[in-house]
Design a protein around this nucleic acid. Structure first.
Lengths: 119, 119
DNA sequence: TGAACATATGAACAGATGCTCATATAGTCA
DNA sequence: TGACTATATGAGCATCTGTTCATATGTTCA
């Protein structure tokens, strides 16, 4: 008969659904989390972030390291900056970018670990 | 003068770029990693995976727990299955889904941790 | 100030994505 | 077998995304 009860909340006796509901974070957290994953879900951005995980780099170095056009790199850096995943400081005419947070590095490593374990 | 050398590989004396290049995984690994992040980057899929992180659930329970239409849940489960992030077994007319891998749970936790630390 | 390098950005466009609707497939039981 | 529940799936559509192209802004130095 299923558990079609939608927006009525839970009924007694459905521990599994209760546990599931408890495991799903609230709207706001979901938004923040998916935003991070979204940032990491694109090849260009992933390259940029992976490159920065080794240390600060200016845009032209990122262009060189990632082999993506300057415009595309700049657009993506803008995105990453807006989402506070990288931060920037100027050094002469250079714009030097760094990872804003160590979690990003950890996420990358974890994903690579998973990826490496595929048969 | 920048380091515009594109597809020519590296030159001597650019340690930072060298380190960056070394930190960027090869094509195949990037693909696998971004695919995982991509799966986690959508709110519906994130809910599904978060729900499953608490234990196995059938589709109707997932519909109930996530408050997403049955069709949408089914479509996304298909995706997650194709990407081997969940696995499925039949139990009568029910289809019971489970997380295929503990890494997914770790990724979710790490992202939530990051999200929770925002100012 | 003007030339040259470095970075940013707006517009436009092609492709990807996620949803709904309708319907198909599958399993259970009378 | 037929009715009923559970799940899956194809088509169509509106929206989102990432890139390129052209150009603007910013910085240094002669």
């Amino acid at each position: 008969m299923g558990r079609q009860q939608k927006s009525e909340g839970k009924i007694e006796g459905f521990e599994q659904v209760d546990a599931a509901l408890a495991a799903i974070p609230d709207e706001e957290l979901i938004f923040s989390a998916t935003e991070i994953f979204s940032a990491l879900s694109d090849s260009t951005r992933f390259r940029i972030l992976a490159a920065l995980s080794a240390g600060a780099l200016c845009v032209s170095d990122l262009v060189c390291a990632t082999d993506v056009s300057q415009s595309a790199v700049s657009h993506q850096l803008r995105l990453l900056r807006d989402k506070k995943l990288v931060s920037m400081r100027r050094d002469g005419q250079r714009a030097v970018y760094t990872l804003a947070d160590d979690h990003v590095k950890q996420l990358i490593d974890l994903a690579l670990q998973h990826a490496a374990e595929e048969e």
